[in-house]
Design a protein around this nucleic acid. Structure first.
Lengths: 346, 346
DNA sequence: TTGTAAGCGTTATCAA
DNA sequence: TTGATAACGCTTACAA
């Protein structure tokens, strides 16, 4: 229980003295208990209890090199998607035993690089990267087990949602809803991030069915207020009143913007008018908690995280076996999204 | 940059051999650079670069006992309040240099205790506790620097929002809105958690002004779905149609339930009817992003976290100076909330 | 089944 | 201003 005043930490040596075994035997008690005589195991167990021994993993790490710590870099834990993923990652502790040193919110390469240096100094066994300030080429150069989720991943192993399929599914659902005009609301995206697949899925589906579509792109900034004003502008300038008599299918590339669209329509009409259909992306909790539960494309957070951990622990194991990480063969896992039809579509 | 194939880690010894200094001098370069001859400092700097030295904090920790790691225990990072606080805590890295080992989601004492044992094994310098499975008495018994935020805190140092004042402010605002009946919607709360102050603030204000009030309590469970059904039941059974002709002021003890109330009203009436006023608690992002921005009582996350870190780092410093933590004198900081009036009140 | 002794890569204490 | 040497608390051959 409590550590007494001024008491020094109890060490293996103390247990050894007390039990008249050697340090080695105490170490074995923890790491290879089956190799001890049952009676002696018992003695040590009692000694540990009476002397109030507490493990010291730092010493163990220095001796065997295994920290059992993974570094986690995320842009934030504020946003639905990242908090969802981070939560699931932390919960893998029960299965894998890895602890997580977490850094959140690096906005520049410099800051992120500093975080990584810290993590490496702590001898983390691997890195999970959700943030996107540092190019994958540089990440690969650290030569440490590493996997990314939903970010640019050319030179590193990664797990991504099949964003293209998501775009196809979303657009397909609007198509089945008999929309007349298909509107993509988006923040301008670079073509090398996984999320761009959503745009391609939309465009290809529109082309395939010869649909009347619009891409409405406004930079949505980094804060909620900026996003609200961008989406509001997008709606007012390019959607509301622009297609009288036509049924409008709106595909928002994030649930956040879908919610804003829905809220604006509600404030204006007191409901979701029948000539509007909306679908978002991410299946964040907020999409379900909106005034009307919003249809969305669900990223399978559990599967994304499970897959990421599998890839990462494989790399960690290989490294332990002395094999270097093969940079020329990054693994890119792709997880199918799930169409989640709720109240903003039929 | 990259670590070459099969290359062993570069150590102080390597730098020492290369520069023909001793390990000690290399150590000094990092810890007391001013005590080195400038020219030699220069030499070492170059050696570090050419040999690609990377810090090893594990060895440093074993030698000097300072991990610069704080353990963080949170119920989740999914919910507005906890993710807000966790985010701010992680960002104190820039100011304090502490890294965070994060555990989320312990639902039972046993699990949480396991987490704490791990953290102690890693020799964390302190603990920040947001979760509430383990009684404060036990937390105090670990004899480690520790501070809690918004949880039962009888035997430990803590930082809490002035929940009582929040309850008073919220009820006062509804009073100023000329409501006729005052309804508290709540999950049954134990009286020893800080949040119960909100209830007392409500009750005292109602008593002071001789208001007609109701306490509507339904267990809200642990998932969003459970909360929705509890709040919906509360509304249908005890509020809607129960006070015809009266202006209803609803005080929800969390933004989550306030949002659900607002959504239900919107679905039913297409707007927030003029005989309803709503105020929530927490100022979570979601409260602002609701169909109508919701009035709420804001917990000052920045101040809560700053204060918590001050208290914790004080304890850490005192412990380094050899003083034991005075369990008989836990510090309880109380941070005033801020009334944030938005569209669901006048 | 148990013990001896040499690490692991730093920092701290004395000396010089 | 620099160096030798002993910690720090554990693991891991190798021996017995």
């Amino acid at each position: 229980m409590a550590r007494e005043k001024g008491e020094k930490n109890v060490t293996f040596q103390d247990i050894a003295n007390y039990t008249r075994f050697s340090k080695t035997t105490i170490s074995r008690y923890f790491n290879h208990p089956e190799s001890l005589a049952p009676a002696n195991r018992q003695k040590i167990e009692e000694a540990l209890a009476t002397l109030h021994y507490n493990e010291n993993k730092v010493a163990r790490i220095l001796a065997n090199g295994q920290t059992e710590i993974i570094g986690l870099l995320t842009p934030n834990i504020y946003n639905g998607f990242y908090s969802m993923i981070t939560e699931k990652i932390l919960q893998t502790y029960e299965r894998y035993g890895f602890k997580f040193l977490v850094f959140s919110g690096a906005e520049t390469e410099g800051v992120e690089r500093k975080y990584i240096r810290e993590l490496l100094a702590y001898q983390v066994e691997g890195l999970i990267v959700l943030s996107h300030t540092i190019p994958s080429m540089e990440l690969a150069s650290y030569g440490i087990p590493l996997v990314s989720i939903e970010r640019e991943d050319r030179y590193i192993s990664s797990v991504n949602t099949d964003n293209y399929m998501g775009g196809v599914q979303a657009t397909g659902l609007l198509y089945k809803n008999d929309c007349d005009v298909f509107i993509l609301i988006n923040s301008p995206t670079k073509a090398d991030v996984p999320g761009y697949g959503r745009v391609r899925g939309f465009l290809d589906t529109c082309a395939e069915h010869h649909l009347d579509y619009r891409m409405v792109e406004y930079p949505m900034g980094h804060t909620y207020d900026e996003t609200v004003s961008a989406v509001t502008k997008a709606l007012e300038n390019n959607v509301l009143d622009a297609f009288p008599g036509k049924k409008k299918g709106i595909f928002c590339l994030s649930d956040t913007s879908a919610i804003i669209v829905l809220n604006q329509l509600y404030r204006r009409y007191g409901c979701l008018p029948d000539d509007y259909r909306i679908i978002g992306f991410d299946n964040t909790p907020a999409s379900r908690e909106a005034v009307l539960p919003i249809s969305t494309i669900g990223q399978q957070a559990d599967t994304l995280v499970d897959t990421a951990m599998t890839i990462l622990t494989d790399q960690i194991r290989m490294k332990k076996e002395g094999n270097e990480i093969d940079l020329s063969r990054p693994v890119h896992a792709v997880i199918p999204p799930r169409l989640i039809a709720r109240a903003t579509t039929d």
